[in-house]
Design a protein around this nucleic acid. Structure first.
Length: 436
RNA sequence: UCCGCAGUAGCUCAACGGUAGAGCAUUCGGCUGUUAACCGAAGGGUUGUAGGUUCGAAUCCUACCUGCGGAGCCA
């Protein structure tokens, strides 16, 4: 018969006696009155326990509780301007599920800690308000990405994690020895399968984990990350760009609409996110981008890819994301369609997030001409027999098509305004980081 | 793999060739409106590891280990 609620619902239970199961986030003591801060995963609630209003044993037990002890508090909810959340619970009774030992107290104290230490306690760090807010924003981003595609005629067709060969030749792959006759690798993109699926369903997307065995140690890289990849039949580069822009705007709008509190916890400057929706994204060709960079002090030459600093120089000039297209064919994947008007550039596009965040999306139009595809496979020294099914797609009713991939963690880092992608996923996997 | 920076109490840091210290956390005491509460006291250390220089090393030198940042590659 207990009136069990969550802290996020407190405003609807003012004046009621309720029960909230949770954990002791912190406690402040002042003689005969104590203020336990209860955490239940949905928020924080300041509670008040007055010695004179409680049995001696209850008060003493509460007073000596340690941080993160699991407790169930029962009391009356009251509006209270002095409490952080605007509501307060007058404690009437207390059930202790477990008191955390004084000899081995909760390691994450309400003071400063370094990232190295916090990462080693990632399983506990997730309980903090800030980490909680990031993961909740991540959830909203993923949900809105799915909603966007679901509402625009895309069918979810997930692609395999085990693959027989590299989707894109250069990057290193994780090997797996289980399968008979040949080695398997963890996927680094669902794109090739997506193309088959697009010919079967028209518009598709896949959403799943991706693995890159790169020796990268930067704030933008994870070894295991999540990617959403739409692919559309009868679509050209312009359509790919249109969909990418519309989707990003939808996602940013949804986060602004539903996750204001979380953005506040993260101290995110929401005007920066609102600016994203104020007008069309900046459109720039690779040629223009190179000229822009050279004029701003970069040593980039036409023909090479952007360095990390280059993306920062470009994106800091605008308050909206940029669509940079028509990269040199030589630096792009074998399946990227060349511009018919200019063979040396490919119909590829990157979306660069503002404020220096850089690339969050890469994509473009694929080669649909069978002869050209075969030629490119040879030029890239790829074994044609490994791509026989992929070549089939060009033999049986080939059509212009394209799509893109968005890295979820990079999108989360940008929208949350984070320094490093490692905080955007509950248990990040990086080189040298497998635990916890 | 390469180039930088850093490892001192559970945590965040100080001491920079001459007795290892503070704040937080923990314990005890005080306080009926606290907001990373505050005030007083106590316990807590093989200074990342192994060598070397020196009368004496947390401090200087060498190697290694670990972490962080960057490059390449990418979402």
């Amino acid at each position: 018969m207990t009136n069990r609620i969550t802290i996020s619902d407190a405003s609807r239970h003012v004046g009621e006696t309720v029960t909230i199961p949770g954990w002791l986030h912190n406690i402040r003591k002042s003689g005969k009155i104590v203020f336990p801060i209860l955490r239940d995963g949905t928020g924080l609630m300041q509670c008040v326990a007055v010695k004179s209003a409680l049995p001696e044993e209850t008060f003493e037990t509460l007073k000596h509780l340690t941080q993160e002890s699991s407790i169930i508090l029962t009391g009356r909810i009251r509006e209270e301007a002095r409490a952080a959340g605007g509501f307060e619970l007058d404690v009437e009774s207390l059930e202790v599920i477990q008191k955390v030992s004084e000899e081995d107290p909760y390691p994450i104290t309400p003071k400063e800690h370094g990232t190295e230490f916090l990462m080693s306690k990632r399983h506990l760090w997730l309980r903090s308000q800030r980490q909680n807010a990031i993961i909740r924003v991540r959830h909203e981003i993923i949900k809105s990405v799915r909603d966007y595609f679901d509402n625009h005629g895309f069918t979810l067709v997930d692609t395999p994690i085990f693959t027989p060969a590299a989707c894109e030749g250069t990057t290193t792959l994780f090997e797996c020895d289980y399968f008979e006759d040949e080695k398997a690798y963890l996927t680094q993109s669902g794109q090739l399968y997506n193309e088959a699926n697009a010919m079967a369903f028209g518009k598709v997307y896949c959403f799943g984990p991706t693995f890159r065995a790169e020796k990268s140690k930067t704030r933008r890289h994870l070894t295991e990350f999540w990617m959403v990849e739409p692919e559309m039949a009868y679509a050209d580069l312009e359509e790919v760009k249109r969909v990418a822009e519309e989707m990003v705007c939808y996602v940013v709008g949804r986060v602004l609409e539903h996750k204001r509190e979380e953005l506040k916890v993260l101290e995110r400057d929401v005007t920066k996110l609102e600016a994203v929706l104020q007008g069309p994204f900046i459109r720039m060709s690779y040629d223009e981008a190179v000229k822009n960079l050279q004029a701003n002090g970069s040593e980039i030459q036409w023909g090479s890819d952007f360095g990390g600093g280059d993306e920062t120089i470009l994106t800091k000039q605008f308050d909206r994301p940029m669509l940079v297209d028509r990269f040199p064919t030589a630096i792009k994947a074998f399946y990227m369609a060349p511009d018919p008007a200019r063979e040396e550039v490919a119909l590829g596009v990157d979306v660069l997030a503002p404020e220096g965040y850089g690339e969050i999306i890469g994509g473009g139009q694929r080669i649909h001409d069978p002869e050209l595809l075969l030629k490119r496979i040879h030029e890239h020294n790829l074994p044609p027999e490994a791509f026989d099914w992929y070549i089939d797609l060009r033999k049986y009713g080939t059509v212009p098509h394209g799509g893109f991939g968005m890295g979820i963690e990079r999108a989360v880092a940008w929208i949350c305004g984070l320094e490093h992608v490692r905080e955007t996923i509950a248990f990040p996997r990086m080189i040298y980081t497998l635990r916890p």
